[in-house]
Write a protein that binds this DNA or RNA. Structure first.
Lengths: 192, 192
DNA sequence: GAAAGAACTTGATGCAGATCAAGTGCAACT
DNA sequence: AGTTGCACTTGATCTGCATCAAGTTCTTTC
């Protein structure tokens, strides 16, 4: 399903046929079964990964063995661990598939090369980073200011696309609350 | 104190005298008194701002009138509201000085122009953004996984430079706890 | 299609941290 | 030097959410 990625690029930037071909030549398509790892804690992450189909989550596991979900990504989003990528250190995170999924992978070295050669691509990547930064800032603000219920309602509102595909216990983890609390919140809010 | 900014640039990238001059020509030095606003909620932020001296905070105010501190910045850091900058919408944040401070301001249009003309500068900016992204991700993880005490200890450890300059009530707000709780945590941990 | 295992719900109980309240100490302004 | 106001502390009480426990239902697997 490289087409999905090609379509994504076409929506964002204009490329010459030669540039398209150059990018395609670096891409590797990868399939993931539900629950399969894309990245395991301790491994070094060296890619740029675009999801063409499906849904993945990034999470850490604390000393008590509890999973904390840092983020979700679905088709037309990027995923990976920037910290490990930049530092070259083993990742503190896991990434695995919530559904059977398909991705397009670039080794980071290749991707850097492509960005160097194709300014439009480089700009696109920077824009994405800017937006991710803003999204994270908003999440921090929500975590500081909101109650469990407010955080859930904001999540549903903002990420309607996710809400039906992702199990509630994972949404709870993402919001920093327990599955029990989320269940009760849903019961409450359904009444209204 | 433009020198501080020049020094910062020299530490990070190599520039020709002509480039240095070009950058300098766009810079505006601005002083802020303690408690003075750099940005007020509702205004549109249009700058890139580098702190040469002092300390500022970025915060929002909720419906109950409670301040939630999103971030701090001291000399040799950048500050501003990327969301307002990119979207052109009024800012939801305030930025004000914790100490008397001095900054170097660029209008974003000028700064973009400089980045377009000077690839090394553009790269530097991207690197900074990458690092901020990673720092935010870690903060989200901490907020999800840690108790109040753990968050405080991690903060002290990670931002020792800040810890002595920033009032405790602001640190508490940054960590998402009350000043009373922070006071008690400090009492506890001092014993050990 | 039976069995095992996730995902979700519901109830009872506990506790970390919030809230409310009443100070003390200290720096800034007149 | 006195006053105002902010930063910080300490104690008493309250509460939102976690934890523990025991089900029910839905999904995967062989």
């Amino acid at each position: 399903m490289y087409d999905v990625f090609q379509q994504y690029l076409d929506d964002k930037i204009v490329l010459t046929p030669a540039e398209k071909e150059k990018i395609r030549a670096c891409a590797v398509v990868k399939k993931l079964r539900k629950r399969q790892y894309l990245l395991q804690e301790g491994d070094v992450w060296k890619y740029d990964a675009f999801i063409t189909q499906g849904c993945v989550r990034t999470y850490s596991i604390d000393e008590k063995g509890i999973e904390h979900i840092i983020g979700f990504a679905i088709e037309n989003w990027w995923t990976g661990d920037r910290e490990s990528l930049l530092s070259g250190k083993p990742s503190r995170f896991n990434i695995d598939a919530i559904e059977d999924s398909e991705l397009v992978l670039f080794t980071h070295a290749n991707f850097e090369m492509l960005c160097g050669a194709i300014p439009a691509l480089n700009n696109m990547v920077n824009q994405i980073l800017q937006r991710s930064f803003i999204a994270q800032q908003n999440r921090i603000q929500a975590a500081l200011s909101f109650t469990a219920e407010e955080k859930y309602l904001q999540f549903i509102d903002k990420y309607r696309v996710f809400a039906n595909r992702i199990p509630q216990n994972m949404i709870a983890s993402y919001l920093g609350i327990t599955p029990e609390t989320l269940s009760r919140i849903r019961k409450q809010t359904a009444k209204k």
